[in-house]
Design a protein around this nucleic acid. Sequence first.
DNA 1: GGCGGCGTTCAGTTGATACTGAACGCCGTT
DNA 2: AACGGCGTTCAGTATCAACTGAACGCCGCC
Lengths: 160, 160
Amino acid sequence: MNAQMMDFVERMGLALESDGLPRIAGRIFGLLLLSEDCRSLDDLAAELGVSKGSVSTNARLLEQRGVLERNSRPSDRRDYYRVQPDLFSHTMAQRLARWQRFHEAIGAARTSLPIRSRKVLHRLEEYQAAYAFMSDVIHEGLTRWQGRRERRSAVAGLHR
Amino acid sequence: MNAQMMDFVERMGLALESDGLPRIAGRIFGLLLLSEDCRSLDDLAAELGVSKGSVSTNARLLEQRGVLERNSRPSDRRDYYRVQPDLFSHTMAQRLARWQRFHEAIGAARTSLPIRSRKVLHRLEEYQAAYAFMSDVIHEGLTRWQGRRERRSAVAGLHR
DNA sequence: GGCGGCGTTCAGTTGATACTGAACGCCGTT
DNA sequence: AACGGCGTTCAGTATCAACTGAACGCCGCC
């Protein structure tokens, strides 16, 4: 791994850290983003210079979040990781889900809290309406994008 | 402040904490979300049971992020805070901006890193294309929503 | 010019969590 | 059945950031 790649990996470490993930998770992600093939845990640990335990924990974390994909090979006990092929849709969906929890908290407050002020009630209603609207917009956009994607890969299939 | 409100405030504290902000910032936000009028720093500190210093720092942080708005009153040296009236658009724009930084890092990698693998190159290009597409979708949706908002408030103005 | 109320700042403490490294369990092989 | 390679787990450590509370600077008022 050359210096520029290490730099990129490190930037990804910080980027995902600011997203609430451990820094090593970000480094794993960055490294796999630049990797042609799947990589084993020991491979990742060696390349990043971190302990095997950290790589194991964080790779599984990223897999659970839909960022990485774990593969196995015949007659090989090792686990291999690579970035989720449909990375974009997964991370987008992930963000939406996290956002929705916030939205639900406001909804619960609006219905179950004894709110006297009309101004406050109106504020919460408006926020929820805006969320619902944008949620639809984003979901609709995502399905449109996936449609394009499938069409393109179908065409690419024909060219093979 | 009753128990249910404290519960909501606390939930907001955790929610914004998972977004990279201090917990107290989330609590301030939650409290102001349920408040009819502006609140002074001392007021917030007393109601939340935290130090004045924390409230000062975190309220300014939220103001800088476009979440809160700082007001002043004639012949009163105190600062008053309330939630940004157009909260939704601001937080949405904020999220997009943070996301774009991530996107730019990938763009820089794609152009300036010596990437041999076509597979990797294609992966990065696809991610960027998806980002560009969704960024447009979201921006377009936001302006549409703001249009609706203005029309509604204009109608409300007629009814007054 | 002293005084009190206000927001800000900063050193110190506390609390949380990422990370290490060693121990462990599992399993196929010899 | 012992061994080696693999992933996982966990106690211990180190690092980092939030939060406190006290000191500070500013400003209008008595």
